[in-house]
């Protein structure tokens, strides 16, 4: 009886967005009388950072401080339509919609400022700190706040913007089956190191090393965090989680957190992430977004690592000790595979 080490690798191309009748997202932005802006989205922040990225993108496009942008994602009754937070589409689709809305709002903002300063709007620039001034003449200046108040109370203008980003439906070519549903692909390569006990069938994850190419990381710290958390989900899907552990009778399935197996804080493995940034031409400031691909490559990499360790190809997830032991018995004992490199 022994413990065998194995290494597995997986590479993925991951499509951003989806193709069910087209893939639109909308955003509405308006200024408040205090010179701050509210972005209304129906996209939901599940903790992945949609609000933060929306604030960054809106503030950058509007030319105002990030703390002056509020994001309201709370209500699909009052917000503009969105397909939703899934398919790793949030940053890319919603980010582009936010840029479109912010550009329109910025246009009105500069027009209102131009009227107050009695200059041409085309000559105005923002300093990102809440001021608008004439290009090359910082003293000819007005605050965003004063502009918003002038627009509201004096000029009778609405400083607002509408934005939509639509990837139209891609029809399938009847002859070739060809279609082009996605505008952006992200990429990743992930290596998993495991140890397999041929007596218990237990698979221990020893470490993960990955490289992700996901466009520009609009918020590098949140990207890293999403990758780390997503890898845990991948580990969980690969080795633990299933609604049917003792099939075929679904009555034996887990019904709550007591019975649903997941890795705890003591089961996680060291994870080294490298993020490669190749800004996407059609992404908001080059962003594509990590999304589901944080978890995806962990599954095949772990399966490959188990094969590398004991020669057992488990093709149904999760890779439970029972499946590993049955596999080892079927091939007459652990059969470690050759390992290239270190």
């Amino acid at each position: 009886m022994a413990r065998y080490k194995g290494r597995g690798m997986a590479s993925i191309n991951y499509p951003i967005g989806m193709n069910l009748g087209g893939d639109p997202s909308q955003a509405l932005i308006h200024s408040n009388p205090d010179g701050k802006f509210t972005v209304a989205l129906s996209a939901i922040d599940l903790g992945q950072g949609m609000k933060q990225v929306t604030r960054q993108v809106a503030a950058e496009t509007l030319g105002v401080p990030i703390e002056d942008v509020y994001v309201d994602t709370a209500d699909s009754d009052t917000g503009p339509h969105d397909m939703g937070s899934f398919a790793s589409r949030g940053t890319h689709r919603m980010g582009n919609a936010v840029i479109a809305a912010a550009r329109e709002a910025r246009g009105v903002l500069l027009e209102a400022a131009a009227e107050e300063l009695e200059v041409n709007a085309a000559d105005l620039v923002t300093d990102g700190r809440g001021n608008i001034h004439v290009r090359g003449a910082p003293s000819r200046s007005i605050t965003v706040r004063a502009t918003a108040q002038a627009a509201q109370f004096k000029q009778g203008k609405t400083i607002a913007g509408r934005g939509i980003f639509l990837v139209p439906l891609s029809a399938v070519d009847a002859e070739t089956g060809e279609m082009n549903p996605n505008t952006a692909f992200a990429h990743a390569c992930l290596v998993a190191d495991v140890e397999v006990d041929d007596e218990t069938g237990e698979v221990t994850l020893l470490g993960i090393t990955s490289a992700y190419e996901l466009g520009r990381a609009l918020n590098p710290k949140m990207v890293e965090q999403q990758l780390v958390g997503g890898a845990w989900m991948g580990q969980s899907h690969a080795l633990y989680e299933t609604p049917e552990p003792y099939y075929p009778n679904p009555d034996h399935g887990p019904r709550d957190f007591n019975e649903y197996l997941m890795p705890g804080p003591g089961d996680i493995a060291p994870y080294s992430v490298s993020v490669l940034e190749r800004p996407a031409p059609d992404g908001p400031f080059g962003g594509k977004g990590p999304g589901e691909m944080c978890a995806n490559p962990v599954l095949p990499a772990v399966a490959n690592a188990v094969f590398n360790a004991v020669g057992v190809r488990v093709d149904e997830l999760p890779i439970t000790p029972e499946k590993v032991l049955r596999g080892i018995r079927a091939i007459g004992g652990a059969n470690p595979q050759t390992r290239r490199g270190g």
Binding site: V228, G229, M233, I268
Partner: peptide, 10 residues
């Protein structure tokens, strides 16, 4: 239980 962070940041 945490379902998002993978525990490491915590």
């Amino acid at each position: 239980i945490c379902r998002c962070t993978g525990y490491e940041p915590i």
